[in-house]
């Protein structure tokens, strides 16, 4: 696991049934591009988050494939439809096999 990885997500605490809400996510990660060289001239191997998913009660909202052109500390903003109360689950997949997860509950009504 890359060091100091910390997810942040911004999700409303409640919504009307069927409401479309804005979701923001940010995770601390170097997103080493694989294009840089170290002091000795050796290429620093790529080490990025390569996939991010957001699901609500098991149904997918967005499934994102990331490449090395995504900036350090990857940020995403998108919209989700909230059909009923439940849990929004966020998952980030690291090149090194680590998986970072975060979950937020949304009430309806």
């Amino acid at each position: 696991m890359a060091s100091g990885v910390k997810p942040r997500v911004k999700v409303p605490k409640s919504a009307e049934a069927g409401e479309v809400v804005t979701i923001k996510t940010l995770i601390s990660h170097k997103m080493e591009s694989g294009q840089r060289k170290d002091k000795d001239g050796n290429v620093i191997p790529r080490s990025i988050i390569n996939r991010f998913t957001c699901d609500f009660n098991g149904q997918n909202v967005v499934d994102v494939e990331l490449f090395s052109a995504i900036s350090t500390n990857p940020y995403f903003e998108f919209e989700a439809t909230i059909p009923e109360a439940g849990d929004m689950k966020f998952t980030w997949y690291d090149d090194d096999g680590s998986v970072y997860e975060e979950s937020k509950s949304i009430k309806v009504g």
Partner: peptide, 11 residues
């Protein structure tokens, strides 16, 4: 939330 500096405040 848009300010990436706040990640470090969390840390």
């Amino acid at each position: 939330f848009d300010n990436p500096g706040m990640i470090f405040v969390d840390q």
